[in-house]
Design a protein around this nucleic acid. Sequence first.
DNA 1: TTGTACGCGTTATCAT
DNA 2: ATGATAACGCGTACAA
Lengths: 345, 345
Amino acid sequence: MRKSAARTGPAGGKVTLEMVALRSGVSPATVSRILNGTAVVSDEKRAAVDLAIAELGFVPNPIARGLAGGRTLSAGVITQAIDSPFYGVALRGIEEVLDKAGYIPLFVSGHWNADEEKRCIEVLRSRRVDGLIVLTGRLGDAELGKVAKTLPTVITGRVLKAPGLYSLQFDDFEGARLATEHLLSLGHRRIAFIAGDPVHPDANERLRGYRSALQAAGVRFKSSLVLQGSFIEESGRAAVQRLLASGEAFSAIFAANDQMAFGAALALYEEGLRVPDDVSVVGFDDLAGATHSIPPLTTIQQSGLEMGRLAAASLLELLAGELPKAQLPKPQLIVRASTRPIAPA
Amino acid sequence: MRKSAARTGPAGGKVTLEMVALRSGVSPATVSRILNGTAVVSDEKRAAVDLAIAELGFVPNPIARGLAGGRTLSAGVITQAIDSPFYGVALRGIEEVLDKAGYIPLFVSGHWNADEEKRCIEVLRSRRVDGLIVLTGRLGDAELGKVAKTLPTVITGRVLKAPGLYSLQFDDFEGARLATEHLLSLGHRRIAFIAGDPVHPDANERLRGYRSALQAAGVRFKSSLVLQGSFIEESGRAAVQRLLASGEAFSAIFAANDQMAFGAALALYEEGLRVPDDVSVVGFDDLAGATHSIPPLTTIQQSGLEMGRLAAASLLELLAGELPKAQLPKPQLIVRASTRPIAPA
DNA sequence: TTGTACGCGTTATCAT
DNA sequence: ATGATAACGCGTACAA
């Protein structure tokens, strides 16, 4: 009769640590020690326990672990929209790395709203996450520093040094410089820039990079070639419509992200202008869609996947008491079919 | 000294139910009852407890709740890739509805692999989720039925009746019929079809819809016009390249999803063919990118957002012991710029 | 090296 | 209606 306890596999409900202890003839404490490597255990006992675990199909209960040990093996991840084409890839990287380490990510969306982000943090805190990853986010630096005091945190999209906090940032300036330089090298001189929402630090950095490249090439900056966008397709489309209406001459467009570049290309298409024959277009991000857009988009690659992976790995290091030192890879120019040498005037 | 316990706000660490009980002069049990509405409590005590909760900034600990009560107020969500353009939107819908109900979703990715899905389920089970949402998925019906026996489950992408299980499905057949009919109504007769991976039930339904519409219009089905794809951009591109190489005449393409339609449009572009002037193209899904593709894609809308919302709402009903009755909205034809009447031969 | 006993913050089962 | 008290499953001082 007792043998029925051997009913194995995850299908049979709740196998507890205590049951493993009983079956292997040791104390629950020892089983716990083996599970966590908390102390040295004799080889025989270890073998017996391992066997029992296998036979019973025991799986530790993270909930109980969380209550007892304070660790939940879960990490909170604050993204802005779970279906964002850029951050979505980052989530995949996070999931991949965290999962390998036995951690589970808790994804919550802040919707580009500081108050919502605060709420997210409270929710995550109440779920007793071991650490936190914030993708960009609107929360102030000070606020974030406070959070990190009690919750190991990795933040992307800004530089910020504080105890318990590690930040990861792309070189937006360099990326924008690269993109602009590419257009300049193709002979373009009248290069329009579609800027992102200035509340994002990234947006300003990219504008800086654009200006810097122009200056280095001796091309005068014209503010009439800078259009305000908001990082979404429609804003890129509207920007180009305004540009066209203004009568300002231009032979190329650099959009501060791919989504706006798509919108810009559409606006050109709608006006009968061809990319790259009439106008060259460069984006920023290298979204999945950039490969198969028409034409395939020349852009600056900043790997969201790698960002996610590194953020997760850094958090894991933070949790292990180590000091992360990962750096995001340098931005790279990906030349596709949306740019070409300027046509002779 | 004791007064320092009144340090309020979420910032001050762990305020426990017991502390609330102490401060309001009742037993922990009563506090719990008030919190959960488990029993009737006198108005005075209730008031006292409410006050204490507010003063202390008490927030119940879901971990402890999970251990004690068996409910974790969390729901597992198995998606295939967290960054999928279609399912991503569904995740947003799920998050939105679940969050409002105080539930938190645990997103895990099965990567279109039955074994991984099984592992996902085990992970989620060990996390003691209260319910499960499976977006499509590769797991067998029988397997899923077994899971649902012990874990309330909502599944999308197939019809399946079982205790504890609710399924939500799009009318793929009707959607495909609509798309094909649209092309037929524009005068197209040689309509190529780029099929999806046949392991997906959706793929076959869409093929059926295509055939059905042809038949209804008296157009003979030609297997040489059916190309095998795999639901990703590149497969659509390759399909069109094969079609072009085959020399088979066609004036329109219906792709079983938007991603393949994008790839198809790219292949046409690369061969110097214009959409819709030379070839009309219709997709399926109405992804976010369809609005700003070049040209904007005519497609069948199946709202991922609504799917997510309804799946979450249905799960909540299941958890409440009710019988869900939600139905997915009918697929709708969205006419954009990638289709036009056939040019006179 | 190993076991005992307690605590983590709630809910549930008894009594009263 | 309310209050003790025992779980829930595990980690961890502390003792041995």
